[in-house]
Design a protein around this nucleic acid. Sequence first.
DNA 1: AAGCCACTATGATCTGGATCATAGTGGCTA
DNA 2: TAGCCACTATGATCCAGATCATAGTGGCTT
Lengths: 226, 226
Amino acid sequence: MSDRVKGQVLRQSTIFSSLDEDELAVLGGLAIESWFKPGEFIFWEGDEPDWFYMVAAGRIKVLKHSSLGKEFVIAFFGSGEMFGEVAVFENKPYPGSAQAVAETRVLGIRRSDFRSFLAHRPEIALKIINILSGRLRDAQSRLRDLAAERVEQRLARTLLMLYSKLGSTLPFTRQEIADMAGTTTETAIRFMSRLKEGGIVRSVRGKTIILDVSKLRLLSEGPPAA
Amino acid sequence: MSDRVKGQVLRQSTIFSSLDEDELAVLGGLAIESWFKPGEFIFWEGDEPDWFYMVAAGRIKVLKHSSLGKEFVIAFFGSGEMFGEVAVFENKPYPGSAQAVAETRVLGIRRSDFRSFLAHRPEIALKIINILSGRLRDAQSRLRDLAAERVEQRLARTLLMLYSKLGSTLPFTRQEIADMAGTTTETAIRFMSRLKEGGIVRSVRGKTIILDVSKLRLLSEGPPAA
DNA sequence: AAGCCACTATGATCTGGATCATAGTGGCTA
DNA sequence: TAGCCACTATGATCCAGATCATAGTGGCTT
């Protein structure tokens, strides 16, 4: 893959869309491409933060393990989204592991290269501040949800969040949805079954199609109109 | 309070420590000071993000309410720490409410002023990226904890986090600790009583003194060596 | 076309921690 | 100096959701 082509990939991201052709080519020149099969890890929690990553194609998840070994999914990222950035900016070990969930191509930029690139491109720094702010906002909402809302609402909100990001067809298994909502697979299945009965979603193996967003929104807000 | 004095206050913060006297005075000139008594709100969740804030003296907490009205504490902030920044950078309503927990003095800078100041001070932007990264990292750890660890460990970790930030004397009631750990006051009290029995903490009304950090660390990591 | 495995499904039981109740106590206000 | 209120304390009960168990099913591999 040429530097220019890598530049084009980078352009599709939120962060770098404002760069011109030449700058993109420079950045592309710093980027190294790699492929991962489903299940393979890009990095592990605790690794040294040598690389800043962006998904070029496919999908990855960032996860953390609990002391009992249970997996919790921080987030899924698709094309054009960066990950591993927290570690790079802080220069501390990655706080979570990144695992491909599909055939995935990622671009990696060395930490030092990326930081010096950033240093003389203030508008990129501002974009990054924006993205981090958004992620922090999300994380804080989820914190509140995990601490104070019941499973039903957490699941409903998880689906809504995915809906607003990906549209009505969600390529996730119940297990993955459960891991995002912080519950068990069984509970997620039971909940989804009820949604199906209520005509709120339709589903095929590994996929969920949202049919009625407004009903879902109701569920996410309060006790089910008891 | 003069602009220069306000500048001195700002200098004590992590973000602005690198600015020189004159720049600090400029920034000080943009800042407006206000006072809050314990319990008073600086802003409410949902308010327009007109101000960027920094604590000059005292302490505030940022909290969110659940759909049932329960309060969850996102974080406490003391002198030199910024808050409300997520809203300012994203230009979306504040995602949480900010409430003074002590007699508190804050400096506020108008959103537009702060953003234009930032635009031509890239090194400040990088500092902010650092702080946001740190907060995101914390939030993600807490997410994992809330989703997958039991209350005991969450409480132990909450105490450790406060310890690393504030030292061994923690000026919080059990209720406040419970709200941070995402549990109830009763559960926090029971847990703290056991810590007292074990000689791990000492406590007086509204305060907790940590005596044995390493035992606390053990508790935070696994089941209590059953 | 057999067999396997990941995914979906559903019932039965168990339990951590919330909830409810009641009370002691120290500091602050009137 | 009385009395109130926020905080600490502890016992009793309850329940949402985890855990355990068992099974059906569709797609992919060999």
